[in-house]
Design a protein around this nucleic acid. Structure first.
Lengths: 194, 194
DNA sequence: ACCTGAACACCGTTCAAGT
DNA sequence: ACCTGAACACCGTTCAAGT
């Protein structure tokens, strides 16, 4: 309510801090609880102070989504066989999504992320596809199918985890196996259509 | 602004009319443009009048999403071979989704609809799966995979339609074919895992 | 039962200050 | 450059009327 600072004083706010706090709030209370005002309150700052560090609420969320993708393990394009690399990359992405269940609906709505990390992951997928002689529009199509499949499956899994509320173990492992098999079918269809 | 009616007079509002107008607004200007207030204005009514016909904005959207599913062609469970019926049902659903591109992101976010039409479609899928000796948790899992796949693919297709902006013909047909092949792979994996 | 008027408790964002 | 105060133009929803 009543601020301890007068107009001139700094609050020590920083862009990474804002993003991290937004992530924290998202993980703790979900999307509806993340408002500019709640975020500002958590940082003990007035709402409009955030606009010195981010452009808008939309770009804030976009940036959070892209940030998380930095956790994905990227295979070495040069030495990894395409099919193996694609399987590993998508499986790692799937794992990262499962580690952030609260964000999955957001990825779904935006059909992926848009920032530099997402861009890089997309480039790696395209490079692996190219090494399997898949390129052009066909490759971009395959990329989008893989993205939708992975996010869609993660949405399914996290939702199942909510409803079943079982101890993390057998059932989650089973679902991950299902992800792998479905992914394998898709990759077969993508890589060997000729 | 200034209403033509005094408190006691009726506006001829009706639940189906409210839902239809919401759909209209959604199709014309998208989700952000659909507010209780814009909807009320279009119906020439004050915002709170809507609450005599709907419970909340959330249930309004849920109902709109379920309504659209009435357009899906449902195969006769008794006489249609399971694999054929599932392929036909999901393909019809896919077609309906493509006919309402503005709603696809909403289905994505909610991972399907929740009302009576969605319930019925789900029951039909489960009945077809049962006739293929798939039941129990495995069947519910398969149902969710099919839902996510179909909505996910529709999201991909509508988005591709936006970016490419090609005349509706060759390319759209190609995408529909891709949907069918992917669906076929999935059904193979679901129906013959033993 | 169905509608209006007025209000409540919020939003995201902008603009003019202050240091 | 970074922050505050105040305000703007919105939201969804509720509550007390009126007929």
């Amino acid at each position: 309510m009543s601020s301890r600072r007068s107009p001139g004083q700094r609050a020590g706010l920083t862009r990474p801090l804002v993003l991290a706090t937004a992530r924290e709030l998202l993980a703790k209370d979900g999307l509806p609880a993340l408002t500019m005002r709640s975020l500002a309150q958590r940082l003990e700052v007035s709402p409009n102070a955030l606009y010195s560090h981010i452009e808008s609420k939309t770009t804030l969320i976009d940036d959070v989504l892209d940030d998380v993708l930095a956790e994905v393990d990227v295979p070495d394009v040069a030495v990894t066989p395409p099919a193996v690399g694609l399987q590993a990359l998508m499986a790692s992405t799937y794992g990262v999504l499962l580690a952030h269940p609260d964000l999955v609906p957001l990825y779904l709505a935006r059909q992926g992320a848009r920032g530099p990390n997402a861009q890089h992951l997309g480039d790696v997928v395209l490079a692996l596809l190219a090494r399997a002689d898949v390129d052009g529009p066909h490759a971009r199509e395959a990329l989008h199918v893989l993205i939708v499949y992975t996010i869609g499956f993660a949405a399914f899994t996290t939702r199942a985890a909510e409803t079943l509320t079982d101890g993390p173990g057998s059932q989650s492992q089973e679902l991950a196996d299902n992800f792998d098999s479905g992914l394998c079918w898709l990759l077969n269809g993508i890589i060997t259509p000729r």
